[in-house]
Nucleic acid binder design. Sequence first.
DNA 1: CCATATGTCGTCGACTTGACGATAACAAGC
DNA 2: GCTTGTTATCGTCAAGTCGACGACATATGG
Lengths: 227, 227
Amino acid sequence: MTSHPPFAVTVDLVVLTVRAGALHVLLVDRGEEPFLHSRALPGGFVRPDETLVDAATRELAEETGVAAGPTHLEQLATYGDPGRDPRMRTVSVAYLAFAPHLPEARAGGDAAGAAWLPVDEALAGDLAFDHARILADGVERARAKLEYTSLATAFCAPEFTVSQLRAVYEAVWGVTLDPRNFHRKVTSTPGLLADTGRTVSDGPGRPAAVYRAGPTTALHPPLTREG
Amino acid sequence: MTSHPPFAVTVDLVVLTVRAGALHVLLVDRGEEPFLHSRALPGGFVRPDETLVDAATRELAEETGVAAGPTHLEQLATYGDPGRDPRMRTVSVAYLAFAPHLPEARAGGDAAGAAWLPVDEALAGDLAFDHARILADGVERARAKLEYTSLATAFCAPEFTVSQLRAVYEAVWGVTLDPRNFHRKVTSTPGLLADTGRTVSDGPGRPAAVYRAGPTTALHPPLTREG
DNA sequence: CCATATGTCGTCGACTTGACGATAACAAGC
DNA sequence: GCTTGTTATCGTCAAGTCGACGACATATGG
């Protein structure tokens, strides 16, 4: 029979948002060794009596000031290669969060600073540990889930227009979509959008109808990326 | 700064196959406490110097005699609620495996016996720990992945007919599909099937063309469950 | 009033889907 | 051999969906 060697267990967070037409990720400057002052995903050790998702929620609030309320949070994957943490054998459960456009993040906890960075820059630079791979996996998951779920609404404020929703798709996928076909698709999917009856005018052009997220969470058939 | 309390880390395996038109899962009789003689998913502790996927591959071979070679293996999710293991704080990384129809499994390692059980029966009975939930998550993941990937071929022998592939879909989804439309769909998707040029006759009826899995892994557009 | 920008509705052809008819090629029984 | 039954494969057709794009609605800024 096998023994059970001790592991350290952490959670790491891939928190994504859309700012200025580009997908951004929340990163912290590490306030301690190893990788002191490197950029890293927010995260930390799981406490003895909390669930994994509680740990993720707590670290998100502690390190970055992002409240879990308006945020979709789901488990991404777990990374546990020997040697991924030079201190000890560590297994990290990564979580993926989608946040609407928020005020600037604040630092706290073990982090010397927290900031939104475009994912392209984050992936091009050096991240601590194996966080570059975790981020890449999270971005790919986000891109895939936009295809067949209503998760794009999690990047929007509680009330939003079709254009704002389309901007999310364009930023996350890095493409431009036809406004007319996109409008037809999202408004003809039953239960996806709930019309508030109001309109809002932002800049020139016809005012846009204001919607709230509807009860439908699955898109059948999906919105496809290539086509 | 935070301390890092010790956790035990295990891998658990949801190994699925199709037998006699029904989806089956590989379960073991636990050979030790806790949950002595309960049915459980195969699995065990991760060793200090192996990766998570190596641990999953090793446990699969040790406990059940299933070789990793013909088997698709992917990470499913991680379960770490306090109290899920009465002995200690344990985090379990679950893996999902798709196996073709194999000879009877054999027991080994910590398992007093290993056997294939229909997933309906497995979910209706009692499984050790939180394995019922892990199994349910694995089955749902398998059902979803059949829609938009070529993973159904992992349930088949290296060479198979369109009917055998259709039988996988029907067993996993619990539906019946129109043979003509299914045939049109899978043969018209470029790169999904590689024709061997041979045919095989099994019982009465016209002999079926024999295919091998092609290079395509993504189905665009997907095969949908409901319609 | 005019130019411009954006939101929304329509139209068209190409393609996909689901239902189902028709044909092909085998086994088994007479 | 011939008939019957069974399974594999090909075709057809109407309905729905998608991408490209035209047309109109309604705002802002001169």
